[in-house]
């Protein structure tokens, strides 16, 4: 089986400071991997390097493209990488306003990726937008409203719809539930789980919330000071952590 994404020796330095160092892993189709660690552990740097938002100093991000098989996205041309970003890849930002066009209606936000890949039939675009609003549990009557009139949870669901409308195969998520109320988080997590299962998505989720990875991720990587200190099956890493830092991280969570 060919990995969907194969990351090799990913390294990013900020001057003398290490962003992330020598991170390698394979992600297979349908797998969801969580990356946890405290602030400054390098998990967001790693995510942004993989998604092509930052240029790594060393390493490969080999993606199994639909047309040409495995390709290193770090060395591919920028137009190709940006095309991936509009088709097979999706990126869900922590703050919906970073991932949405706040001045554009909900329907326009969802439709943008469709139009970016050449759809030119208004009726079709609108039908797909309506369908996706339904799938993320946003009332179809809100299709012409701007996201500024939406609650935080709705904005985040809209961002997810906007990202998934073109049927990507790999979704990068940066703290997707950060800053949301607990009840809203639960709804979003349930939604994400269903979408991942039904669409067979692969996903990489960066978060500091261990409850989020327990519910969403099959696998887990624990990062500290830019390096992976432990990786494995999510429930195994959480229930039987091996590394000193993972043990500290798990034992630091307040039980409710």
């Amino acid at each position: 089986m060919t990995p969907l994404l194969s990351v090799q020796g990913m390294t990013k330095r900020y001057g003398a400071h290490i962003g992330c160092a020598d991170v390698s892993f394979d992600l297979y189709p349908g797998e969801v991997m969580g990356i946890v660690g405290e602030s400054g552990s390098g998990k967001s740097t790693l995510l942004n390097c993989m998604a092509g938002h930052l240029r790594p100093d060393a390493g490969q991000v080999v993606f199994d493209t639909r047309t040409d098989g495995p390709r290193d996205t770090v060395t591919m041309s920028e137009p190709e990488r940006r095309m991936l970003g509009r088709t097979d890849w999706a990126f869900v930002h922590q703050h919906a306003r970073d991932g949405l066009r706040m001045g554009v209606s909900a329907g326009g936000n969802v439709g943008e990726r469709l139009m970016a890949v050449g759809e030119r039939h208004y009726g079709d675009i609108r039908d797909k937008a309506t369908d996706w609003l339904g799938r993320v549990e946003i009332d179809a009557a809100r299709i012409d409203d701007r996201p500024t009139t939406f609650s935080g949870g709705m904005q985040q669901r809209l961002q997810i719809a906007r990202n998934l409308v073109t049927g990507p195969r790999l979704v990068f998520m940066d703290e997707p539930t950060g800053g949301l109320d607990v009840s809203v988080q639960a709804r979003l997590l349930d939604l994400l789980r269903g979408l991942v299962r039904d669409m067979g998505l692969s996903a990489i989720i960066v978060t500091h919330d261990l409850a989020v990875v327990r519910l969403l991720a099959d696998r887990l990587m624990v990062m500290k000071n830019g390096r992976v200190v432990e990786a494995g099956l999510t429930d195994q890493v959480l229930d039987d952590p091996q590394h000193a830092y993972s043990q500290l991280l798990v034992s630091s969570v307040l039980q409710v």
Partner: peptide
Amino acid sequence: MRMIYGNYL
């Protein structure tokens, strides 16, 4: 039992 399930390493 948890080892058999792979929950414990």
